[in-house]
């Protein structure tokens, strides 16, 4: 049972959801799978006046491709992303990240759009989204725009999304050679540290999650990498204020970030 009262409204299309968002303003929350929102509402950490359920909008549930990208609907569940042959073939790191989220039941409900919008600092997708240079397509009352991954994640639970906008698609550049590895928190399986590494024409790109208040591109590692994974991984937390909490001290997290960066880089070759 959710302790605080709210109005529940089901949207059957993106345009209906956008109209409802515009109408209810900041008092509304979108519910996709609900696996971050509902627990937060049970604890009164989030107390929306209106919940707009977008979980049954079919147009958000497709995975397709164009020449260079995968186009993943925001409403695709983690299980859909993890088991899609298109994703496994063209964005292996993303499939690996999706399959490592929570557990089977959570993956059956949680969605990629919901997870990105929630922007938990220990979420798995952001490392991959950053490393692949994906774009996050959002729609709002002022139209549609594509946000670069690098601009999307702004801080703890904070993104570039405006209050009247929702994520509709994620455009992930295809990459044959990519990997996502993480050190899981043993109960929640959130990433204490997660590292995505992608090989491309210019070298490697590396995204790290769980280390600080938001996921980041480890540019220092990318610049230092010349085939020596160990030497490059020493730069994993350069310029980053590393978090410490009851799961892992800042010192231990820094160590894990380097170890998992080295392992991810090694796994590429």
């Amino acid at each position: 049972m959710i302790p605080a009262k709210f109005e529940y409204i089901k949207a059957s299309s993106v345009s209906e959801a956008l109209d409802l968002l515009a109408k209810h303003g900041d008092d509304a929350q979108l519910l996709a799978g609900g696996h971050s929102l509902v627990p937060a509402m049970k604890l009164r950490l989030n107390q929306p006046g209106a919940v707009i359920d977008i979980g049954k909008i079919e147009e958000l549930k497709n995975i397709s491709e164009d020449d260079n990208h995968l186009v993943i609907g925001a409403g695709c569940t983690h299980e859909q992303v993890a088991t899609s042959s298109l994703v496994k073939e063209n964005a292996k790191a993303l499939a690996q990240a999706a399959s490592s989220i929570g557990d089977l039941q959570v993956r059956n409900m949680g969605t990629i759009g919901g997870s990105l919008a929630h922007a938990d600092p220990a979420a798995d997708y952001p490392a991959v989204i950053l490393a692949t240079g994906a774009k996050i397509v959002v729609e709002g009352s002022s139209g549609k725009r594509a946000i670069d991954a690098a601009d999307f994640f702004q801080g703890i639970f904070t993104t570039a999304l405006e209050g009247n906008e929702m994520i509709t698609e994620v455009h992930v550049p295809k990459a044959e050679n990519g990997v996502y590895l993480k050190f899981s928190q043993p109960a929640s399986r959130f990433a204490v540290v997660g590292c995505a590494a992608i090989k491309n024409a210019n070298g490697v790109s590396v995204g790290l999650t769980g280390v600080t208040d938001t996921a980041y591109r480890a540019s220092a590692v990318e610049e230092a990498y010349n085939g020596d994974s160990k030497a490059a991984s020493e730069h994993a937390v350069d310029g980053v204020e590393v978090m410490g909490d009851h799961f892992a001290s800042a010192e231990y997290r820094s160590h894990l970030a380097k170890v998992f960066t080295e392992r991810a880089l090694n796994a590429l070759t």
């Binding site: 529940y8 609900g34 509902v38 627990p39 919940v51 039941q105 959570v106 059956n108 409900m109």
Partner: peptide
Amino acid sequence: TSSCGSCTIIVNGKAVKSCTLLAAQ
């Protein structure tokens, strides 16, 4: 809190934790 899984049921063919779904959904 969707941790323990004892509330797991099948909805449209998929196992889900029914404590973290609203009946309305």
